[in-house]
């Protein structure tokens, strides 16, 4: 079985991200980068699938040079192969352009059975790239997956649970499938020292737009239909009122204020 996992490098979720507003770019200096938290679950699910059903894992990441770090981490966790999709032409790609590049990588890898992605990134937070990859390749589209129940590689079938509004949906799907996973589907492991040491010496192979055979007119800022035209800092909420006094009085006061809103039915 061939398992692909898509991972992204994002700014640390604990850091206060600064945006260079006139230039519309992110100030990356001084900000720690991490693997997108949702992708850690995707990577772990790929490792579990390999353990339970056999196969090879290919980890891919689209991003600038520095993003190679997340692939090195994947190597330390013993994925079989990594590829960094990097090209100046990719900069500023919107969701369709991004999924087009990733889908092109799936085609180049070939004979893919399962693609694992995180539910969304914590920076762009669009949460649609997995669905767009599935739609482009004609793969089964399985989003918000909270459990992989079974994989039948011989008969090209998978059964998963999806955590959607109101409950859990159990779906059987044909392979190949693109699966986006939610937090809590597993407990991501940490790489061991030997894995880290080994990965530190490994080469991260790069694939450019030409390597992937992508049409440069369809990627990057120029090739994307949607673009960001304005970035603003939302006005601060402004600190409200600190209610002071004995708990008895304070509680009575807040209860009155909330009841006056006429929201409580």
């Amino acid at each position: 079985m061939k398992i692909v996992v898509c991972i992204k490098q994002v700014p640390d979720t604990e850091a206060e991200v600064k945006w260079d507003i006139p230039n519309g770019t992110l100030k990356r200096e001084g900000i720690d980068s991490i693997i997108n938290p949702f992708d850690e679950f995707a990577l772990e699910e790929a490792l579990l699938t390999r353990e339970n059903y056999d196969g090879d894992i290919v980890a891919i990441s689209m991003g600038p040079d520095k993003a190679a770090d997340v692939l090195r981490n994947a190597l330390a966790l013993t994925v079989n192969e990594v590829h960094q999709l990097t090209d100046p032409a990719f900069a500023g790609s919107d969701t369709y352009a991004t999924s087009y590049v990733l889908a092109s990588a799936m085609k180049k890898i070939g004979d893919v059975d399962i693609v694992f992605c995180g539910k969304q990134s914590t920076d762009g937070s669009t949460g649609v790239v997995a669905a767009e990859i599935a739609s482009q390749l004609g793969f089964s589209q399985l989003t918000y997956v909270s459990k992989v129940r079974s994989v039948d590689a011989a008969n090209k079938k998978i059964i998963v649970e999806r955590a959607i509004e109101g409950g859990i949906e159990v779906v059987e799907a044909k392979l190949p499938a693109v699966i986006s996973v939610i937090k809590g589907i597993n407990e991501p492991r940490l790489p061991n020292l030997m894995g880290i040491r080994k990965a530190s010496k490994m080469e991260i192979p790069k694939w450019s737009a030409d390597d992937l055979g992508v049409d440069k007119g369809k990627v990057g800022a120029a090739g994307s239909a949607t673009k960001v035209v304005e970035i603003t800092v939302p006005p601060p909420r402004g600190a409200g009122e600190i209610l002071k006094g004995e708990i008895e009085e304070v509680a009575a006061s807040v209860v009155d204020k909330l009841i006056d809103m006429k929201v409580i039915k």
Binding site: D94, Y96, A131, Q136
Partner: peptide, 23 residues
Amino acid sequence: ATSQGTDVAAASAAQLQFGLCTD
């Protein structure tokens, strides 16, 4: 921007070959 709305919007946009604005 629910699970269903996002699923259909994303896959439809991909079928039409262009991006969308989510959430």
